[in-house]
């Protein structure tokens, strides 16, 4: 697949793209092949040189590295540093890569030896004491949020990168998209929702299905956590329910610390 890519008569360089996964469910990578209707168009935009889940060929020559998953073991630190060296651009793919994702729920335990024992008994197991996002280890050029990511968003971002356009994430919360979709607010149906404080861009994926938002995309630019606490209380939801959702994906770690103090 080497035909030239042309946009408005101007030939464009087809970037060499590589996909890597650290500690993850591999769901974000799978989302890339999960959009059958546009998959072939997407593949014609880029040259995929590394995608272990789907292909046997491997190469260290790539422009853009999409890295999924969080960092949980010393060998992953090394792999990530190598990827950083090889790639012109490193993109964190999904909430595990951006914030630690569900994996970081174990950071809430003081005693990591207990965590290991709970699962493996006395059998020795190699892992770091803290689950970290990619940005704690190397510089990241771009983050794509979500658990899972939205394929449409990745396609848009890649297209914009090729065209040299700026990439900006929505600053407004999920609520804006939810209201635009004319959903009945879940609070009125007796369900808790983090839509008011979570970054939009998912088109209110969960509230569209009458499932409250759990904050997988992390905080919106103005995330008024005191406000959501008030709303939750007002609708009769406990602090535990709020905390379960806020801490689920790791995007609100700083906010949780803040209101544990007040």
């Amino acid at each position: 697949m080497s035909e030239d890519l042309v946009y408005l008569g101007v030939p464009l360089k087809r970037p060499k793209v590589a996909f890597f996964e650290l500690t993850s469910c591999e769901g974000c990578q799978l989302q890339i092949v999960n959009n059958e209707a546009t998959l072939l168009d997407f593949l014609s935009l880029v040259e995929v040189v590394n995608f272990r889940e789907a292909m046997s060929e491997r190469s260290d020559d790539y422009d853009i590295a999409f890295v999924e998953g969080s960092v949980t073991r010393a060998d992953e630190v090394k792999r990530l540093q190598t990827i950083r060296k090889n790639a012109k651009m490193v993109i964190a793919l999904g909430s595990c890569a951006c914030f630690g994702g569900v994996n970081q729920l174990r950071n809430r335990f003081q005693d990591q030896a207990w965590v290991k024992r709970e699962v493996y008994g006395d059998f020795p197991i190699d892992t770091e004491d803290e689950v970290r996002p990619l940005s704690a280890v190397v510089d990241i050029d771009l983050e794509i949020y979500g658990c899972p990511i939205r394929k449409e968003e990745v396609e848009k971002i890649v297209t914009n990168l090729i065209l040299g356009k700026a990439i900006d994430h929505p600053k407004y919360p999920v609520c804006m998209e939810c209201k635009a979709n004319e959903n009945i607010c879940l609070f009125d149906l007796g369900e808790p929702c983090l839509g008011p404080v979570t970054r939009g861009g998912c088109d209110a994926w969960c509230p569209n299905s009458r499932m409250g938002c759990w904050g997988c995309r992390g905080p919106a630019e103005v995330a008024n956590v005191a406000q959501i606490r008030k709303i939750m209380r007002q609708y009769g939801f406990s602090e535990e329910i709020l905390l379960d959702r806020l801490e689920c994906f790791g995007g609100f770690t700083a906010h949780i610390k803040e209101f544990r103090h007040c």
Partner: peptide
């Protein structure tokens, strides 16, 4: 593969989690 310790992640979480 690196473990994620799901069985431990769930401890003390309510059923809906």
């Amino acid at each position: 593969e690196t473990p994620r310790f799901f069985e431990a992640l769930l401890v003390n979480k309510k059923w809906d989690n």
